[in-house]
Amino acid sequence: MEVILAIVIGGLYAAGIYMLLRRSLVKLLLGLGLISHAANLLIFTAARLTRAASPIIPVSEEAFPASYADPLPQALILTAIVISFGVIAFALALSYRTYKIAGSDDLDKMRETKE
């Protein structure tokens, strides 16, 4: 199963990176979104997959079944998801403001290297 997900991860990275490399600001934003999906899925996969029970102790029991999904990467991914949500929201606002000021979303026109 890891092979399949590894390919999915690679595909998502490829798509995200391709979008990052565009000249259009709008596409860049979509690229960021795709890459964050890829990264989360990567953590999930690298920590090994299991179809076993989710890491929740059933109410009736005091101990845990022998087979369970690793809860730690889930917590990490959750944190990462939320952080990238904040980042993407900020990036959207930044793009909006940039577009308003620059009047274009062509990134090649935004290269004020000399002053």
Binding site: A6, I9, G10
Partner: peptide, 14 residues
């Protein structure tokens, strides 16, 4: 470039 990068990530995971 992006396909190569994606392939690398796939390999890394595997």
């Amino acid at each position: 470039i992006s396909l190569l990068a994606g392939a690398l990530m796939t390999m890394l995971v595997l």
